[in-house]
């Protein structure tokens, strides 16, 4: 009994604070999205799902949603695959592994703002290192406007994001690979599994929980990432790199459409929940097993 009393005592402040600042705020956001709050003066009279209906006719909303889906479809798998590839390369006991590990992880240690500014410079069509490099190695015909070209800007964003995140996924996968008991690997080798087939049949299947964890983190970032894109392209050219968080910020703070911004936030929240809840369910089931 005494232990449970202490447990309650210890938990209560954080439960109350999280309850208020996270869950009550989410509830409040939903209320705002149903209200007629326009302008800076709060107004909570409920007008129903009008804002959500408006969203259906908002072309910028659809472009943003499409770009978020593009992030999920391209950025998430490419970060996972690249991270896995790098982890396997490091796992074969290369010399100076520590150095490589640090080099790969470094991008993730820097803030999004710094990385986005860095890539903005590299992508500069005239003085950026990418075009100059291509020119100098005789591949001048590959020179491009990069983020300033609306037809490929979103892919440039995805490339830069993948670069930043693959070091992190590499680290998670490397830890996963290293946690596989040596005896299993040796047994597999005795059975004739080497190189590629060793990884394909023995190692990678055991990374399931790492992949799942990384998958959820990347998915959530793909949906809520704001700062990186805000700095790198600001959503441009035109609306070509708009994502939902950017649209939410613009509607709320640039146009003072609080109810509308809250509706976008609620949509984002629902999509994130669609991803996170199955993960929580799966991982809790695994723990029970």
């Amino acid at each position: 009994m005494k232990e449970s009393v202490i447990a309650i005592l210890v938990l209560l402040p954080s439960v109350l604070l999280v309850g208020y600042f996270v869950y009550a705020s989410i509830g409040w956001n939903v209320v705002v999205s149903l209200s007629n709050w326009e302008g800076l003066q709060p107004s909570y009279s409920i007008v129903g799902f009008r804002r959500y209906a408006d969203l259906l006719y908002d072309s910028v909303f659809w472009i943003s949603l499409k770009n978020n889906l593009l992030l999920i479809l391209l950025f998430v798998p490419s970060s996972i695959l690249l991270g896995l590839f790098l982890a396997i390369l490091l796992d074969v006991k290369v010399r100076a592994e520590g150095v490589f590990r640090t080099v790969y992880l470094l991008p993730f240690a820097l803030s999004f703002v710094i990385i986005a500014s860095l890539w903005a410079w590299m992508y500069d069509p005239e003085v950026g290192v990418l075009n100059i490099l291509l020119e100098n190695v005789g591949l001048g015909f590959l020179k491009s406007g990069w983020v300033t070209d609306s037809s490929i800007a979103m892919y440039c964003v995805i490339l830069a994001l993948t670069w930043q995140f693959s070091g992190y996924t590499m680290l998670v996968f490397l830890a996963g690979l290293r946690s596989i008991p040596e005896s299993q690997v040796m047994a597999a080798e005795v059975d004739g599994a080497y190189g590629f087939s060793l990884y394909r049949r023995i190692m990678i299947p055991q990374l399931k929980s790492s992949v799942l964890a990384v998958f959820v983190i990347l998915m959530v970032f793909a949906l809520k990432g704001f700062d990186f894109i805000y700095i790198l392209t600001g959503g441009g050219p035109g609306y070509s790199t708009f994502v939902l968080p950017l649209e939410m910020f613009r509607e709320t703070f640039s146009m003072t459409h609080f109810a509308y911004g809250a509706a976008i936030a609620t949509v984002l929240f629902v999509i994130v929940m669609l991803i996170v809840v199955p993960y929580l369910y799966m991982s809790s089931r695994r723990r029970e097993e």
């Binding site: 070209d149 609306s150 959503g235 441009g236 050219p237 035109g238 609306y239 708009f242």
Partner: peptide, 9 residues
């Protein structure tokens, strides 16, 4: 945003 699109296309 409209003008940014115009500058592009």
């Amino acid at each position: 945003d409209i003008m940014s699109a115009f500058v592009d296309n």
